[in-house]
Each structure stands twice: as structure tokens, then as C-alpha cells.
């Protein structure tokens, strides 16, 4: 089996690579590439993302054919894709970080700044927070409700259809932190930095 981590100059992906390799051991081949053919023929795709919504979308668009290849993989061929952090946020129609930017439009909704209640809450939302699992998700197999995950973000994904939400977390408001829509998975938190529980989520995705 091949799992491809999309390398599109979206910032730091070494932790994602290390964690997937740790979990995959020799059972699964982890490929790190932006090669369109390799992505298309892959069994699973991981879409990481750090920095701003706009910088990640720009970076995706900078690689000719990449957005189409990913859309074909996830939307037409319905193969499993996991978005992490801004990787999840890009599923939305629009993001409002820096300026209004068009997203991939795979999961209707928008990405807007977390309401910090006039400075009462610090932003970014950095650190370990508990997740409330609100629907069964394949990537949460064996994960207890209220498990701690590592977060670092100032923007949140607000999907139109709440049925896609698989987990939320409580900060200044109730924040969507995981979605599952058919074959598309996304986490706002960083499973690659969330210790053993995070590695379990990665294992669940690889084992789908």
C-alpha cells in the first residue's frame, strides 16, 4: 500500500513525515511528493498545511495540475484523504485569513478567525485540548472521548452541514476540530504531535 504525503511547499512537514513513517514501519510505503501521477495512483493521500490559508492555497496552485489531481483522487475516485490543520481548512469554499481566498470547496463552509472575546482568550489557540467526539469516525477507532490533542491555530473551519463534524473542542467557543465526509477526513489538531493518541489516529487512517 502507498500513502502519499503531498509535498507542496506548505511549510514544515517533517513531523508529519516522521510520524507516518513511525506508524507505517515496513508495512506501508510512505511517499513524499507532489508528482501528479504518483498522487493519482496512491491508495491514500495526506494533505498537510501550515502557515496561512492563503499561502497554502497559493502553494497548491503553484504546482500545475495539483488541485485537479487531488480533486480527482478525493472527489471522483473517492479514495481516502486526510487533511491536517490548514490541510483540513482548505476543504472549505472560502478562507478569510489575510484576504478572502477561494478554497477547494470539497466540504461546504468557511474558515474564519476564532472569536477571542475581545482579548479574553489568547490566540493562537496553542497547546493540548480535549476533543468531544460527536459522531463515530473511522479514524477515532480506539480513541477515547475527551482525549487530549495538540492544537495550534487562530482560524477555525465552520462547515455548513454540521453532520460532517466528527469532533469539537472547547476554547473561547465550541470549535470544529475533526470532520469526516465519506472518504474525506480532516483534523484541525496535529495527530503527528499528539503523542501516542495522535499516532493511533494516523494508524487508523493508514489501516482504512
Amino acid at each position: 500500500m502507498n500513502v502519499t504525503i503531498v509535498d507542496y511547499n506548505s511549510g514544515n512537514i517533517s513531523s508529519v513525515i516522521n510520524s507516518f513513517k513511525e506508524v507505517a514501519k515496513d508495512k506501508v510505503n510512505i511517499e513524499i511528493t507532489s508528482d501528479l501521477n504518483k498522487i493519482k495512483s496512491s491508495d491514500k493521500v495526506v494533505l498537510p498545511g501550515q502557515g496561512s490559508f492563503k499561502s497554502c492555497i497559493d502553494a497548491l496552485n503553484n504546482i500545475s495540475g495539483l488541485v485537479d489531481a487531488l480533486s480527482e483522487f478525493a472527489m471522483n475516485n473517492k479514495k481516502p484523504l486526510l487533511g491536517i490543520c490548514v490541510g483540513l481548512q482548505m476543504f472549505a469554499d472560502f478562507g478569510y485569513e489575510e484576504t478572502k481566498t477561494k478554497g477547494l470547496g470539497w466540504v461546504p463552509g468557511k474558515v474564519s478567525k476564532i472569536d477571542n472575546q475581545n482579548g479574553k482568550y489568547k490566540l493562537p489557540h496553542i497547546g493540548w485540548n480535549q476533543i468531544n467526539i460527536v459522531k463515530e469516525s473511522k479514524i477515532f477507532k480506539g480513541i477515547e472521548n475527551n482525549s487530549h490533542m495538540y492544537f495550534v491555530h487562530s482560524y477555525e473551519f465552520v462547515p455548513e452541514d454540521k453532520n460532517v463534524v466528527s469532533a469539537t473542542t472547547d476554547y473561547s467557543s465550541n470549535i470544529v476540530c475533526s470532520v469526516e465526509k465519506e472518504n474525506i477526513f480532516g483534523t484541525q489538531f496535529h495527530p503527528e504531535k499528539s503523542d501516542k493518541t495522535g499516532l493511533k489516529i494516523i494508524d487508523n487512517f493508514i489501516s482504512l
Partner: peptide, 8 residues
């Protein structure tokens, strides 16, 4: 922070 994101 522009290049890599404020988070890091």
C-alpha cells in the same frame, strides 16, 4: 512568520 506561519 509570513513564510512558515506564526505557529512556529
Amino acid at each position: 512568520s509570513k513564510k512558515f506561519g506564526s505557529q512556529c
